[in-house]
Nucleic acid binder design. Structure first.
Lengths: 157, 157
DNA sequence: TATTGTTATACTCTATAACTATA
DNA sequence: TATAGTTATAGAGTATAACAATA
């Protein structure tokens, strides 16, 4: 098994490969996410979307009629922080807010046709950006990664 | 393959499983990290460490003599944001700052015995916390996950 | 009484610019 | 002229408390 216990210069990089830290899943997850996130951000910025607003638009698109507190639950964020995001999506004509007749405290969120189309286009761009980073990761490894991450998440529910 | 296209109530949870979003690696990575991070945070808080200060202490421990800008590179963070963190680690007697004789602009960082011991203890706690979340993930899946995440990260360098 | 959406606010993280001392 | 460490500050992102409307 390849293991580097040589701390001196190795291959040009700014040194430092840590094993104790590198063996922690949380650290590896964060590092991997840090590579992907900026590229996703850049791809979404072309359509004036942030990662969080894209996530909202995406879930609303696939779950027409969802209300804000449910959306907050789904994204594990505070419903108070959702307000301005939905405000913007609504102002841009991407989603609609409609009072639920049976419970007038709640607003049913639905993506407009324009919203759904934007979501599809943006998702495609993010996918392309991700694929470029994934590089040599073949389909089998990708599928396995996704399955394990999903399982990891499910284990905590 | 198991695929849910039923959007109605499934098993008590607050609904919502999105496929377009859920098929993005960035989203899955973030979700998985969101499950792990709070537990790691809680484990580290017992020793008055934050994730970032633990990461610093850990890298310094394994790379005695590293200077701040190298550490910033290693953790992919701004060196300006490192200052207060190292300040605190130094004040707690966990690391030392020593001017490098050959280049007096730089400070060599080294973990003290107490720092190294704290790192080892804290790492063990985080590991335990992670293992509890990982649950049924067996050694093979864990190893494969780590390898793929590492590869994913390496692909971008 | 409890919940939904909302507002305001505080707190943490991260990013940027500018300074100093050294090179 | 450039770099390391530092400071101050601005900007995100996130969390908390309180309120009005509704249940």
């Amino acid at each position: 098994m390849p293991q580097t216990d040589d701390l001196s210069e190795d291959r040009g990089g700014p040194t430092v490969e840590d094993t104790v830290l590198g063996d922690l899943i949380g650290y590896r997850l964060k590092r991997a996410y840090m590579q992907i996130q900026p590229e996703a951000q850049r791809a979404l910025a072309e359509d004036d979307l942030r990662v969080v607003s894209f996530s909202c638009l995406s879930i609303i698109t696939d779950n027409a009629g969802i209300v804000q507190s449910e959306l907050a639950d789904a994204l594990q964020m505070e419903r108070s922080n959702l307000v301005v995001i939905i405000d913007e999506l609504e102002q841009r004509g991407l989603v609609t807010r409609k009072k639920v007749p049976t419970d007038r405290r709640r607003y049913a969120l639905t993506a407009t046709l324009r919203g759904r189309r934007l979501r599809d286009r943006a998702a495609e761009k993010v996918r392309t950006a991700e694929d470029q980073i994934i590089g040599r990761l073949d389909d089998k490894d990708r599928a396995h990664l996704m399955a394990v991450l999903q399982r990891l998440e499910d284990n905590t529910r």
